[in-house]
Simulated scan of single mutants.
Amino acid sequence: MSGILDSVNQRTQLVGQNRLELLTFRLMLKQRYGINVFKVKEVLQCPRLTLLPNLHRLVKGIAHIRGKTISVIDMSLATGGLPINDHENRFIIISEFNRSTQGFLVGSVERIVNMHWESILPPPEGMGSSSYLTAVTEIDGELVEILDVEKILNEISPVNEQMSDETLAQKPVITKKGAGPNKVLVADDSSVARRQVKRAVETLGYEVMLAYDGRDALNQLQAMALEGDIYQQVALVISDIEMPEMDGYTLTTEIKKDTNLKDLHVVLHSSLSGVFNESMVQRVGADAFIPKFDPDELAAAVIKSVKYQDN
């Protein structure tokens, strides 16, 4: 199992081609789940866990791994299932999300599957706001669920969503309606991320349009372009990278090659590794990349993009 990610660096060629690789795993029941390999740092058998006072009920304990202390979250319990027992015979997926590293305790880890984002579909309608799914797919005739890890982490340790006074002092002046673009399109498959970005952008005075994946975002933009000059309607596009059907890299590529959309500013906003994404920003033509989620950094990116377009 320790060698399951040895060739992860060779997989970067998949990015930008609307492809990904899923690491599949199971919790306590037969249902299969998946996580993007690029969010996984390591997979190992669960080490001895240390219990500390006042831990969140979803945190099974603290693990000391390679000189670092990492919280280990019971993924089954976090999604409303049975707690995972028999820890020493289970596995943890060490993952980096939203600037933090944590371990997810799972029942078993299976294999890595090469997928196309078009095969990753939004969850069924009617799941409700309490659902932990961001997407589903089918592997070997079996449904595989992709969990909203950002929602799980936000329930354990909510991020600060308030902008600083210094950032608010730089808030742009939004002129009256009709004088210029006053809408920002936000594309993200996570309900938590959409809410966070929406709140931040609205604080700056912009109207927010929401898209649930890259294809939804592209369809909305192309429909608006048919109705009139897109640059008088949309000030900026803020997109997640990991999304069903069409990822953020592919969305950016499609925007930049569309003659009616090519000059729109695109900011990629992701929980994936910042170092890796900086190179991909240039490759696909995005205008900026910021890691999730810091309201001041997000606001600064919006303000910078708007000022650039006004010059």
Rank of each mutant, 00 (worst) to 15 (best):
G180E: 13
A135F: 03
G128K: 03
G180H: 09
I174S: 11
V159S: 13
V109A: 03
F91P: 04
Q162M: 14
S131I: 01
P123S: 04
A179M: 07
P123L: 07
E166M: 13
S164E: 09
V186W: 05
L121C: 12
R66E: 10
G80K: 05
L153Q: 01
G80W: 02
L82D: 13
F91L: 04
A179N: 07
E110P: 00
G178W: 08
L147K: 11
L143F: 02
E142N: 07
I65Y: 09
Q102H: 09
L185N: 08
H116F: 12
Q102A: 00
V184T: 02
E166F: 12
F104P: 07
G80C: 04
I146D: 03
G61N: 12
N98E: 15
S164R: 06
G103K: 02
E125K: 10
N114F: 12
I146C: 03
V136F: 05
K171Q: 15
P181K: 05
I112L: 14
E125Y: 08
G128L: 02
E150Y: 01
G126S: 10
A179Q: 11
G141D: 08
V149H: 06
G107C: 03
I174R: 12
L121T: 11
D148S: 00
F97E: 09
S157F: 01
F91H: 13
L77M: 14
